[in-house]
Nucleic acid binder design. Structure first.
Lengths: 109, 109
DNA sequence: TCAACTATTCGGCGTTGCTAAGTACCAGTA
DNA sequence: TACTGGTACTTAGCAACGCCGAATAGTTGA
């Protein structure tokens, strides 16, 4: 991976996954596949699972174990109230950063 | 600081400082002040200096020691060819990420 | 003399994503 | 039966980054 992207993902990936979960509940494997489809080809599977566990520990998501027809049971995560609040704050931080960078990009040309 | 912003800055701050340097040479103290003016109120001074040293070690910048009228000598950094190339790549990674996030934000509402 | 501003350096810390390996369950196939 | 491959999750150790706090050093003005 681009190395630069890896570093940028720190802090952003969290928001990305939270945003996915805000649309609908999902489990780790599903999220990984979704990300791959959208061009995040090299996001490590382990990373997503670790992230989800962190969400759980911080109380941002609710978890439900659902048996799978094919393979071990899935852990389905859904965003709760606290998670939505946290996602709102994420978007604020993101907007702030994105605006500054846009200005910098314009000015720097 | 927002905590979330701190994590987002990982990888982005690098690009921000590089972008500043692409406009004109500058020294650490100046860059810190510039960032504070633009709303990055809580970026630690030490962080910027460490970043600049990293740039130097990677050969992205040229350094010149310039005596200051007020205080110890300044280390003035200017972007070199390699630095500009690296900045280009940064913008590519940033665009990629920003696009995905924009889509997610729209879709997630 | 003392504070305040300019300007840089250094050591240790916590968070994050990556790597790599492993576990577990099921289906199809030879 | 044994093996391959897809599904699904876990874990341990690593490196990079930004933050915190303290120190150093030069100049100016009270």
């Amino acid at each position: 991976m681009s190395g630069q992207l890896t570093e940028m993902l720190k802090g952003s990936l969290e928001g990305i996954v939270l945003a996915i979960l805000s649309g609908r509940p999902a489990h780790g494997y599903e999220i990984t596949a979704w990300l791959r489809d959208r061009g995040f080809a090299d996001i490590a599977e382990g990373t997503i699972y670790a992230l989800l566990i962190r969400f759980e520990q911080r109380g941002l998501v609710d978890v439900r174990k659902v048996p799978s027809e094919q393979g071990p049971p899935r852990k389905v995560y859904s965003l709760n109230t606290q998670g939505r609040k946290y996602l709102d704050e994420f978007w604020k931080s993101w907007s702030f950063l994105a605006e500054r960078l846009q200005q910098l990009r314009k000015g720097g040309k």
